[in-house]
Design a protein around this nucleic acid. Structure first.
Lengths: 221, 221, 221, 221
DNA sequence: CATGAATGAGGTTTCATTCAT
DNA sequence: TATGAATGAAACCTCATTCAT
């Protein structure tokens, strides 16, 4: 994506007055609500403004175009999730592998479930222009944090490679998405947390075990 | 969704003549191409028709509206993948758990990778109206096949529950999607196959083991 | 102007069916009428379409955007005038200077006055983006024709230089514009024809006379 | 135009304080700059205010609306040019025709070229609502001054009629515009001055000569 | 059956202007 | 007085869909 294109998606002005901050927040929440109540292809800037209780003109004072609005909402969410993963990774350093994986998986699920409405709403715009790029970036951020953490595991000799980490992360993403789209009752969420930990733990165990055994084979590639 | 709505999305006529079949196919392929070259929100019926080498009018002879076109393309793909999973499940009956999981995971990846262009194109319309419902239906179909297969495992006492099967399936979906969106080189696809098998196997092993141990606790819930 | 920009101003499609040709013509005339009745800054594509008796959508089938519509109308007029000047230049070759100038000046006035409504309407959009470039191009065309004609004058030794020709042409343009904007009654137009001939003749006479006399001084510069 | 409409376009307050004068001047210059850098149809009041270093609100304290801003800038320029012509006319009274014409033509070119940026910028708004009226008024003013001056010519019996004077003036306007829009290098401007004098002189000579000869015919009309 | 011209509702975006701070 | 956030009418343009040829 060219630099111009990205710039075009940046917020237009940072609110300085208190009134403006309230407005921006209202627009943000309205976007989520419209996404959920009408769907992505019936989300119009007019509708968002209406729901936010402001005029369209006001919306366009803060976002140069519709894309930047969706972009902004998506970015905000991805940043929060990535930050949660990073924090968990930092906190779990030097612990045993099992414990590490548990903490991260639980942190991920918790971050996603804190605002299920937002999480679900955003699946609708994730495939839009720029969405995949944003998601990839957030994924990379998480993967790096995981990698750094795993290198400090107190009980493993073999380090899972980059690909395995991405596998695990994308499995987490996929499973969580599936639960959210099926309908995330508290009971289901609890089960997801539990099973995601199990899934990640067993995969990591398998990967590190296998890697140790087959170390010479892999490194020869 | 009411019955009427679903009916409105069905193809208008079944092509019996050879010429019609060719036309429908051209439209089908054109849809994928436009999706990939222009993106979902710049896909117009005129553009698809143009790419397919027919007039808009002709397109509307085979699909009553735009939704039905996208719906049709998505459904076709999901059906193929579900069918591949079902076939693998049928073939692997009565084998050991490990082998079952391997065959299914590999079949899934192979089905998805047979036409990476289609797989990728469809992520763009998966979130549209009707998409999630279609995906859920296909997921259920696969889950049932998996469940039926797993019940015949030659080496396990405990049967993984419905939730665990959904977890595994959605992990497969998520991991495959991640690879496709990152750029699926043959080497990466090979690695995905391998790791997905490993991930599913270890998760199934963990689940069945745990279930056996904690059987009395779970069933008390 | 970049090539893309120019392309964006080209008509979108050439009418093939008879019906379409009628439509394009109606849009053309409607543009002139709206320009005259509402002014350039109150000319909207909707209004033009309305006046033409078609829908906006139809307008946009033939012109990719508003600019191209105005551009098209302006270009058509300038082309006609330039063609008239060229024809007069060709016809007057090898005649005496006086006669040449008379024929061209009269041809210019006649071309401009054939559709005073169009001429007047276009002054309103001449300053818009692209307008000056178009006008310059048409001017160059006329100047070249004049230059070629003047070189064949049967009674002059000295050839008026490029600048003098441009002076004469722009004086013709300016005087005609002034008359049109003041209100071009048939009597006034007759007077304009007469006086423009006089003005051009006397200027050309002065220029060629002076040039002959001061030839050595000029060429020394 | 009704009296009210004209009143609405007058500046809102006469700046008595020094600070106000500075502000008005900044707005004035900003208008020219925006006109040149963005074009008339991308001139917005916000943009002008920004360029002038004031807020929109402040701009509206001095001009009741956008029209009045453009109107004001155009009027100021036309007044200056008309004043220059008038001054030249006054100065050249009682001189020979040739000298009169020279002084006026040169004064006109000099006035136009003193701020080529302003002259060029204003061509963009000359066709807007009110522009033609303003221009006509300024033209009348110049024509009257010319007429009064020419009546005092020391060497001519026949007086050029009103129409001829308008012809000459509009030819001056047209030729100068052409040069400005082509790109007015100092050398070109010098040439314009010279040739414009020649053109006007020869036309006036022809007109007065002819008028004497054909006096009885013309007056019969 | 195929074509493609026509439709027009509706979406995005701009910008002159106001008014509370 | 100066500011700049808010307004909302209105402009431009797209595109799913229809129907006469």
């Amino acid at each position: 994506m060219p630099a111009d294109a990205l710039q075009a998606l940046e917020p237009r002005k940072t609110p300085v007055q208190a009134r403006a901050a309230v407005t921006v927040d209202a627009i943000f929440e309205a976007t989520i609500q419209v996404l959920l109540s009408h769907g992505a292809d019936r989300l119009t800037t007019t509708r968002v403004a209406e729901r936010a209780g402001v005029s369209v003109g006001t919306l366009y004072q803060y976002y140069p175009n519709k894309q930047s609005l969706l972009f902004g909402v998506l970015e905000d969410h991805l940043d929060k999730v990535a930050a949660a993963v990073e924090a968990a990774c930092k906190h779990a350093r030097h612990k045993p592998l099992c414990e590490m994986v548990r903490e991260v998986a639980e942190a991920f699920v918790d971050a996603k479930m804190e605002r299920t409405d937002i999480s679900m709403a955003l699946y609708q715009i994730a495939a839009d222009v720029g969405g995949p790029a944003l998601i990839k970036r957030a994924g990379q951020r998480s993967r790096k944090a995981l990698e750094a953490m795993l290198a400090t595991a107190s009980d493993t000799v073999a380090q899972p490679d980059r690909f395995a980490i991405e596998m695990m992360f994308s499995a987490m993403v996929g499973a969580t998405r599936s639960v959210l789209e099926t309908g995330a009752s508290p009971a289901t969420v609890r089960k997801l947390r539990e099973h995601l930990v199990l899934l990640c733990q067993s995969y990591m165990a398998a990967v590190t075990a296998r890697r140790t055994e087959t170390d010479w084979r892999e490194s020869a590639t």
